[in-house]
Amino acid sequence: MTREQAKALIGERFSSAQVDGDAPTSAEATASRPIVVTLPVDQWTAFAQFAKTTLGCRFFSFSSAVDWKEQGLEVVARIDNLDDGVGVMMKARLGPGVSACPSLVPVFRGAEWMERECYDMFGIQFEGHPDLRRMLLSDDWQGHPLLKSYAVDTPHPPYR
């Protein structure tokens, strides 16, 4: 499974996905650059399942989110095929005001903790997550810190 084969398979199965849409932004050697796939949100879990079974990407590296202010949130995940050295970086824009996304937990067990952290930091509700609660902050914390609308030095009496 080379990078080109993987790209071809993705292209024929997910026609609405943008594969390597932006100009290559990393200076890594071409062979080890990840395939950046920008998807619509409803194909999130389906693409992950496809990558795991067909492309052989069984290693779940991480999943996170980015807050693009007016354009809304974007979820990012990276999965790798360790044997062939092919990496896939999945991205999906949620759109302004939307904070719901299908969960990757049915496909990869490692997504459990990563998605809990995304919920904690961004407030994204993952549908299908077995146990969505706060991970790093206490359960009664108000607000989601990594959103751009949250100030870094928010006071929290009596400790700060």
Binding site: A151, D153, Y159, R160
Partner: peptide, 18 residues
Amino acid sequence: SGGPFRHGYHVVKGVDRV
């Protein structure tokens, strides 16, 4: 005093507050 993380939202500004 909170150190390099003093301005973080989850950091206590020094253990002498506790």
